[in-house]
């Protein structure tokens, strides 16, 4: 009896191990091949860093990286501010139509990006907004907003309105109540929402793809174009860097939240 349980547990652990191998194997192979001198990934390995040097000279990919970072930062700032404001209103006030406003947050999350992206392309083109970096920011903020509102609202659920009342009865103005009482309490939620917004924007490919123009593209769009032209080892190198940076920063964030949560 005990033996069967132990055996099943062991099998379960082995299964999870295999699954982790499946998740990480291609990433390791890609990282390995970015150091392989052969552009056709010939084995045995002939170690080199020349693809990274080539990357440093590839102005197209570097420009696209800056575009991606700028767009992600701008999207994060706008979506976090607008989203937090909307969450506060949805929590603090009682008014008709609130359920509808909450329900309206789900279409942007649930509708595939292919549909949203092509719809944005048609509409922006039609009303004269056109394509380019400004159109991409417009789209990214809209994609990130529902995530920010959902995450911040979840944190606001834990906030007792009595705190606001107490502050008001002690003579605090609405502005003081918000900045000194409410915002400090929901700060972890706002930070989490901002991280979501950044990730949604920085990883976004589909919507950026339809809204970009040849000169004004983000990194994923450039990578897609390069892959479709044919494999280039420089794409290996840039992909390896993206993987390392995004996974590394996520690990840092996880540590931060763990310690933040325990305090």
């Amino acid at each position: 009896m005990m033996g069967t349980t132990r055996l099943l547990e062991l099998l379960g652990r082995a299964f999870v191990g295999l699954m982790l191998a499946f998740l990480y194997l291609p990433i390791f192979i890609m990282a390995l091949m970015s150091f392989n001198a052969s552009p056709f990934y010939q084995l045995p390995m002939d170690w080199t860093t020349s693809w990274y040097e080539a990357l440093a000279r590839n102005s197209g990919l570097i420009d696209a990286t800056w575009n991606s970072l700028r767009i992600a930062v701008l999207t994060t700032v706008i979506a976090t501010i607008l989203g937090t404001a909307a969450s506060l209103a949805l929590r603090r006030y009682v008014f008709p139509g609130k359920r509808l406003l909450r329900a309206l947050l789900f279409p942007p999350i649930a509708i595939p990006w292919l549909i949203t992206g092509t719809a944005m392309l048609i509409f922006f083109f039609g009303v004269g907004i056109g394509r380019g970096l400004h159109a991409i920011v417009l789209g990214h903020v809209a994609l990130a907003l529902p995530y920010v509102i959902v995450v911040v609202s979840a944190r606001l659920e834990t906030f007792a309105p009595e705190y606001e009342e107490a502050a008001r009865s002690l003579g605090a103005t609405q502005w003081q109540v918000t900045t000194r009482v409410t915002l400090p309490w929901i700060a972890p939620g706002v930070v989490a929402g901002a991280l979501f917004a950044f990730a949604v924007s920085f990883d976004q490919f589909v919507v950026s793809y339809f809204l970009s123009t040849p000169g004004e593209a983000t990194l994923p769009v450039e990578i897609y174009a390069a892959i479709r032209k044919g494999f280039t080892p420089e794409i290996n190198a840039v992909s390896t860097i993206i993987m390392t940076v995004s996974m590394g920063s996520m690990l840092l964030a996880a540590r931060f939240f763990r310690f933040g949560g325990e305090k």
């Binding site: 607008l82 909307a86 209103a89 006030y93 009682v94 406003l101 279409p107 549909i115 949203t116 092509t118």
Partner: peptide
């Protein structure tokens, strides 16, 4: 309570309207 809620809600939902709901209608 619509009155105090509106300025907080308007920017976010206006943005969603311009970038999501109007495009879907246009499509």
């Amino acid at each position: 309570q619509w009155r105090p809620a509106l300025p907080l809600l308007l920017p976010a939902y206006l943005w969603l309207t311009v970038a999501i709901f109007l495009p879907l209608s246009a499509m």
